[in-house]
Write a protein that binds this DNA or RNA. Structure first.
Lengths: 236, 236
DNA sequence: GCAAAAGTGTTACTTGTACACCCATGC
DNA sequence: GCATGGGTGTACAAGTAACACTTTTGC
């Protein structure tokens, strides 16, 4: 078979930014790196692309390996390829962005990989250009969550409106008006009232909703505007 | 120096989607491929990433080579990496998205590369997954132009409001109301009235504006909403 | 003077924002 | 019975959408 007459072939990495939400803070799944260079330092979970796998398959493999989860929300974020981004050798990294329901992950797998869930505002310095990757991912989360109903991916199947509000408040780091939030949300027609109530509350129990998955697909691209003006992304 | 113990290193390509606007239609700069496989077929302009260059530098090099232009609007779009996307050998392609002022390109360079400006609705079948890349780029153009003032990148330095309107009508393939368009546009405060008039018109001459580049940078992320509801992106 | 395109203003409607009171629950 | 959080309605402001007439120009 024909092969291109080009000498330089490059190592292709995949790094995954995995967001979760614990009901209070947005968290990031970070690992202590187990290979040289920079062994022992904090980094994103990553790996090398295999010869026989598509990019998304590689990302799925890495996420499954770390969390035990399949069929979660994953999208490609951006590819980082500065010449010296990795001191060992030229490596180009395709970064993926994943949202998971934090209580469904396999905590043993996470522990075995030296990984931890860390709040965004407490995240340590990361290796290479991983800090930049995380910055872009947070920006993307804010941007996307303002326009599309992706917040649900971070919550359990049954959730309450106050839970969802806390999620958006965490994403934009700003308080939102309860009444307006609730009204706007219900007006999307994406929520189904399950009739039951949240039992683990010490005060008035909130109504549990689930996502109307059919309408969800139809309305995925209907633009929202939950993003407060002051929080609109600032950098390209 | 340490080198990762991984055997497979992969060929990294860069493909560029270059949009222009001729006052009537959105056009794409396409080339007749001059290497095997698929020599002679239409494709995006591309090349291979060099060992000593960053991704954006590579994209800039390729665009400059084809158009003679530097300092244009370029952003990374997405990376395509299906295992068999290139029949010659495994190649992962980072796709860039560029907007240029069509009358400023070096038409001799374009001719020398067997390239042509082709209207979106007349574009031929492209090789590999390039059709998919173009689809994503059109979607991205619509998405982005609805939220950020990127349309200016496709127009000459001095432009009229009717010109800009025709551009948006071409992007969304839908008519817009002149009065509302003009009012909304002027209310952004991004336009400076140059005082002069468009001379090459056979009827009433329109006012020439230029972009307020300082406010442009400040307001780049102020969200617009020029996108008509019916035109909101439909696929992920 | 007429055809073709540019410029401009008002009104109705829709959507967003601000804000306060009552209800359910556990202690 | 009280503190905590959940649920709801209304009035005002802002933004969007619809629509018609006048002006400039080249022929």
């Amino acid at each position: 078979m024909y092969r291109y007459p080009v000498t330089s072939r490059i190592l292709l990495a995949i790094d995954c930014i995995i967001f979760g939400f614990d009901g209070k803070d947005i968290k990031l799944l970070l690992v202590k790196r187990n290979l040289e260079p920079e062994m022992g330092k904090w980094s994103l979970m990553g790996g090398f692309l295999r010869e026989d796998e598509d990019l998304e398959v590689g990302a799925g493999r890495i996420i499954f390996y770390l969390t035990g989860l399949k069929n979660i929300y994953v999208e490609q974020l951006e590819t980082f390829g500065k010449v010296n981004r990795d001191p060992a050798e030229r490596t180009v990294s395709v970064v993926f962005f994943a949202l998971i329901q934090i209580d469904e992950h396999d905590s043993e797998a996470v522990r075995n990989h030296n990984a931890s869930w860390i709040s965004l505002d407490q995240r340590p310095e990361l290796i290479f250009d991983h800090n930049e990757m995380v910055g872009r991912a947070i920006e993307h989360l804010r941007y996307k969550a303002a326009l599309h109903p992706i917040g649900f991916e971070l919550l359990p199947e049954l959730f309450t409106i106050p839970q969802l509000q806390k999620l958006y408040e965490a994403i934009y780091n700003t308080p939102l008006d309860r009444r307006n939030f609730s009204r706007k949300l219900l007006s999307t027609g994406l929520l189904i009232d399950t009739g039951s109530k949240n039992s683990n509350s010490t005060t008035k129990k909130a109504t549990l909703y689930k996502l109307d998955t059919i309408r969800y697909k139809e309305k995925f691209h209907a633009f929202w505007n939950f993003m407060p003006d002051s929080m609109k992304p600032v950098k390209i």
